[in-house]
Amino acid sequence: MTALAALIRRDVRIALRVGGGALIGVLFFLTVVVLMPFAVGPDLALLSRLGPAILWLGALLASLLTLDRLFMADHEDGSLDLITMSRTPLELACAAKALAHWLAAGLPLIVATPVLGLLLNLDMVATGAVALTLLAGTPALTFTGMIGAALAVTLHRGGLLMAVLVLPLSIPVLIFGVAASQAVIVGPMTFGAPFSILCALSLVSLVIGPFAAAASLRHGLD
């Protein structure tokens, strides 16, 4: 456990230090959301109807783009070799890295959501619903995105290729995340059903993500 705690502590620390990318994700989220009204117009009624979708898309893009370098940095400076050789199973190490990434880059998105909800004319309940669905859903985005980040190391290519690989995998999360938030705002569905599925997706990805990422890293090492 100390090994995993040390890994989480290190990654969070690096993300928050100078040169770390934790807060750039939030800034990206903010920018994407602010751009939307320029595309659809400043009609507040329309914006509040589109609000959950806009927030979810912004969070999806922000969390994927920051994932790009999850393993790449460790690969480039040789840390990944030592992590692979250690007594800690690579699957657990991957999970710890993803958790650290979520703490540093995913959690701030949720904190920023109420402010952005204000810009999109969402009321308190709707904002709360979106924040809650993001809290339940962003771990799924991080843990599935991690597979793409591991593949990016294997293929020596990051950026867009990773986004193309991972975005389709995140469609279910997007569907149920937005559905649960919309259920609160307009109905007619109940909040519970899509939200439970969203939580289930997160739990499944918590299991699948680390295994897939570790497998891809093991085969990709050279």
Partner: peptide, 14 residues
């Protein structure tokens, strides 16, 4: 094993 490769496995920010 300890592996000491070409790369130092150090983080400049820490």
């Amino acid at each position: 094993c300890h592996y000491l490769g070409h790369r130092d496995a150090l983080k400049p920010a820490l």
